[in-house]
Design a protein around this nucleic acid. Structure first.
Lengths: 211, 211
DNA sequence: CCGGACGGTTACCGGCGGGTAGGATCCCGA
DNA sequence: TCGGGATCCTACCCGCCGGTAACCGTCCGG
């Protein structure tokens, strides 16, 4: 691939600039290799720097990973909140949220892999961050559901989680299958599924369905 | 916890019995710790046996994990196929499939964690197994969708994946939240969501929704 | 009584990779 | 010109764990 392999060595950088650059290199490596297979040496090399420099900015591999992860989970929660607030028509809300979700997953950096394909979920803090993220997204959605349907909180939460599940799983499938349809089409189809259900699709002939 | 810690040492077993027992011990450890944190020593100890015995049955940690994983992915695909074949009414098909999915996840052994929370997805063969599993489930569902709606294969596949996504994500949430509602209720609610969509739930007052 | 197959054990190796000690360089203000 | 405080490097340590070599007891057929 023509990815920005190893950056030129030798250039000195002010502390904060170096830090963000290291985060970028770490993201690339963690996304490509996962937490366990990623080596600190490799992250350092990718950034054009030696390992101790990395440790001057982050106390441990784990902390580096957590910093990165938090950044991206926050991003998704914000995107979800934004999409929900963009309209008051619920059907459009669903569409907007799906679109936001697909946009998040479709980013060049593939950073969604950190969030949805983490291989460090054994760590309690990682679990906690991911759980928080899901709560953040689901509660925002559940609030709307609860308000508009009068369902009990638990049920609303379950439905909300279901909606995030649709987007999450279909979006990853869509990427992994090589984006077989345009992003907007996929998001729209999935939004339709979410809004009308699978029973809401037209029947071909006299097959079974609703009476 | 009162989990069956370490089994009594000293008993000799015929080869095949030992093998299945080792698989059981491995499942317990992998489920509790994940692939990376699990040590071969611990699996052996859990089975009341020494490490070389483990290696007389499985050539490597990776192979052991793969054997275990394949077993459980097959299980889920079969359950899905069974549920789809249990009726010809599509609405009931959805309900049955959800119920099957929830049953799979609600097993005592928590073996679903191997499948849905694997920390070894970096491995190509693991990826392949999981991908196969999703294809297996999704294609079975997509076949029905395609046949009944006349949608193109890709679209049907996307919808099918969406339905698996609902079950997968809600079921895990339901477990993680401490099973806040009975399993049948959760499965039924989620089946309703899948069939009618979020737009199919009753409105509380004069709020936005379908016109 | 004997040999060998089978199931099991202890004790060890080796490398990978996270983390660190100690020193070299360079910029900048006095 | 001369500290001194950044920034960065080479070189190393060491613990963990997957995997193995070599050996032991026991049962069974001849």
């Amino acid at each position: 691939m023509a990815a920005p392999e190893v950056r030129p060595r030798g250039a000195r950088l002010p502390r904060s600039a170096r830090r963000t650059q290291l985060l970028g290199a770490a993201r690339e490596v963690f996304v490509a290799q996962g937490y366990h297979a990623a080596a600190m040496d490799e992250i350092a090399e990718r950034a054009g720097v030696s390992k101790p420099v990395l440790y001057q900015h982050f106390p441990s591999k784990r902390d580096l990973y957590l910093a990165l992860l938090e950044q991206h989970t926050d991003e998704l929660v914000d995107a979800t909140r934004g999409a929900l607030a963009s309209t008051t028509d619920n059907k459009q809300r669903v569409a907007a949220t799906m679109e936001a979700f697909y946009a998040f997953i479709d980013s060049e950096s593939e950073s969604f892999r950190l969030v949805f394909e983490s291989d460090f979920t054994n760590d309690p803090e990682v679990r906690d961050l991911l759980e928080r993220m899901q709560r953040g997204c689901a509660e925002a959605i559940a609030e709307v559901i609860e308000e508009d349907t009068g369902l009990p909180a638990t049920e609303a939460q379950l439905l909300a989680v279901g909606l995030t599940g649709i987007s999450h799983v279909t979006a990853r499938w869509w990427i992994q299958a090589g984006r077989p349809v345009p992003r907007e089409a996929a998001a729209a189809l999935v939004a339709h599924l979410s809004w009308r259900g699978i029973g809401g699709f037209p029947k071909a002939e006299g097959k079974a369905g609703q009476p």
